[in-house]
């Protein structure tokens, strides 16, 4: 059976991708072009770009946990001007969609980044990182509050006509309220989840394993949290979702599609094996073929719950989350 009738193309609002497999911000860099053919990817999401250069946090910056990775890198990057001069021209050599992840310490910084990148050719979409747990100002401070999330996204929305993605943090009581605020502010796509805040301690020295103390947890350990949150948001809102969190193979990706994601991004998996995103594309094609499906759309949100399944209940969304 040939795979000619499978079409992996996905439409995330105005952002059209040749397949639904992305690589997540902070886990992929130009160096990967030496090992895999990145033109096969649905899109590349860059490491967070900030207005000015950031040195990053003091090491150690990562600590491996059971099936997970705790990190506190601190958004080390050379700043947006450097990105436009050096980084972007490199990426543009490749026929692959590019999503630029941006982070700021203030609403104005996010807005300024949106303005600067709005004119940049070769940037296909912007992803607002309102969820980084590892910087002192900004990042997650916006993403845990619906009102602040709204302010950041609407400020960016008014400065750019490019497709706008809001990347959400799982470190909240009610993910739906944040998601709704972002959509109301003009985000056309949501990506979730960023890392879960955590702490690892050395029992011998009594000191945190990371130089900065707390960090963010990623990897397979957080996958069920991510799948659950995708489904909560999928149930509540009509907006394309990019599922992120512990995806290592196509079956993990299928879980996210069934929960309601239209695309997935591989993060920590890129460290495990740089081929994972390409293997997912191949595996997904075969899977759809075997199921007699034509595309990912046939899977989106198709999880089947038993009658009487339990649901997360929160005061603000209780009414919307009953089956």
């Amino acid at each position: 059976m040939g795979n000619n009738k499978i079409n992996l193309e996905v439409h995330l609002g105005r952002l059209i991708l040749k397949n639904p497999v992305l690589v997540a911000s902070g886990t992929f860099s130009y160096e990967y072009t030496e090992l895999i053919d990145i033109s096969k990817l649905g899109a590349v999401v860059t490491k967070a770009v900030t207005l000015r250069r950031r040195q990053g946090n003091r090491p150690p910056r990562t600590w491996e946990t059971s099936c997970g990775l705790l990190n506190s890198i601190g958004l080390e990057n050379p700043g947006v001007e450097h990105f436009l001069e050096k980084g972007l021209p490199c990426w543009r050599r490749w026929p692959v969609k590019l999503i630029v992840n941006v982070a700021g310490e203030t609403v104005e910084e996010y807005a300024e980044l949106a303005r600067i990148l709005d004119g940049a050719e070769g940037v296909d979409a912007l992803e607002a990182n309102i969820s980084c747990p590892n910087i002192r100002e900004g990042g997650i401070f916006f993403g845990v509050n619906p009102e602040m999330s709204y302010r950041v996204i609407s400020a960016m929305r008014s400065r750019t006509s490019k497709p706008l993605i809001a990347k959400l943090t799982p470190n909240v009581t009610d993910i739906v309220s944040i998601a709704r605020a972002c959509v109301e502010a003009g985000a056309e796509i949501l990506s979730l989840i960023n890392t879960l805040r955590g702490l690892a301690i050395d029992p011998d020295t009594f000191r945190p394993r990371l130089g900065k103390g707390f960090g963010g947890l990623s990897g397979p350990a957080i996958k069920p949290v991510a799948v659950g949150m995708i489904h909560q948001v999928y149930r509540a809102l009509d907006v394309p979702l990019i599922g992120i969190g512990g995806i290592l193979d196509y079956r993990d990706a299928v879980e996210f599609f069934l929960a309601g994601a239209r695309a997935v991004a591989v993060g920590t998996g890129n460290f495990v094996n740089p081929r994972i995103p390409l293997e997912i594309i191949e595996g997904l094609t075969k899977f759809l073929e075997e199921k007699g499906m034509r595309g990912v759309e046939d899977l989106v949100g198709k999880v089947r719950f038993e009658v009487g399944a339990t649901w997360p209940r929160f005061p603000r969304t209780e009414g919307e989350l009953t089956i």
Binding site: S29, P59, P60, R61, T62, L69, I73, E76
Partner: peptide
């Protein structure tokens, strides 16, 4: 973590 230069974990 990545060994390739992407993640910026192993800095000195």
């Amino acid at each position: 973590a990545c060994g390739l230069g992407a993640c910026r974990s192993c800095v000195c």
